[in-house]
Amino acid sequence: MPANILMRADHTDQTDEDLAIRISPLQALWQNGAVRKTGILLALLVIWQVYAVRLDNQLLFPTLTDTLSALWRSIGDGTLLARIAASLKVLLIGYGVGVALASVLTIVAINTRLGTDLLETLTATFNPLPAIALLPLALIWFGLGVGSLVFVLVHSVLWAVALNTHSGFRSVSQTLRMVGQNYGLRGLRYVFRILVPAAFPTILTGLKIGWAFAWRTLIAAELVFGVSSGQGGLGWYIFENRNVLDIPAVFAGLLTVIVIGLVVENLIFRTIERHTIQKWGVQS
C-alpha cells in the first residue's frame, strides 16, 4: 500500500496572544539591572548621609553634602580638573607604551618558539610582582617625575595584556588559521587580518585587566609622590588635602577616582564590546 500524506491545517489558527504575554510596567522596570543597581546606590548614599550627620565629625567622616560641595569647589577653581588631566595624561602614556610593548612581545612570541619561551618566562616572573613594588627602584632610576610613574604603569599593563593576547592567539581555531593561510596571508598581515580579530575577546579582556591595574597603580604611586614640577595628579590631590585635613576634599578625590574608573569600564569598554564581540556573537 502506498504511503499517504494527510494535510492538517489547524496550525494556522494560532494567534499572537499566546506567543507573548505582556508584563506590567513596574515589573519591566524591575527587570532592568541598571534600575536595580541605581536603587542600591541611592540607598547607600542615603545611609552615608544619615550616618555622617549623626556622627557629626567632619575630620573622620564628612557628610555626602559636604563631600559634594568640596567636589564642586574643587571643580570650580580648576584644581580638580587639572589634577584629573595630569593623571590621565600619565595614564595614557603608560598604557599606550605598555600595550605597544605587549604587542611587539606577543607578535615575536607567536612567530618564533624562542619568543614564546621568552614571553612565558617573562610573564611568569613579573606577573606576580605588584607594579607598585617597583616604585622605590623606579625613583632611583628615573627620579621624581613622570618617568618613574610611566615605568610602573608600563609594568602593570604589559604582562596582563601580553599574557591574554598570547593565550588568545593560541586559542584561535586551526580551521581559521588554515582559512587565513589559504588566502596567502603571512606575517604581520596574517596577525592583523586573522589572529587579532579572532582573538579579540581575549585581547579585550587583557586590555580591561591592564586598564584596571594601571589605574589602581597610578593612584597608589601618586600617593607616594605625586608632584613633579607643580603638576600633581589625583593621588596627589588626595594626599595634599589629607595633609591640610580637608577631609571632604579627600572624599571628593576618592569619589572622582571611582567615577573615572566606572566611566572607563562601563562606557568605553562596554561600548567597544557592544560594537565588536557582542555583535559578532563571540563573547567568551
Binding site: 580551521t175 581559521l176 588554515m178 582559512v179 589559504n182 580579530p197 565588536t276 556573537g281
Partner: peptide, 14 residues
C-alpha cells in the same frame, strides 16, 4: 585552491 572545511567556524565571525 580554495578550501571549504567541515567545521562551521571557518567563517570569520567578525
Amino acid at each position: 585552491r580554495m578550501m571549504v572545511f567541515q567545521e562551521f567556524d571557518q567563517l570569520l565571525p567578525w
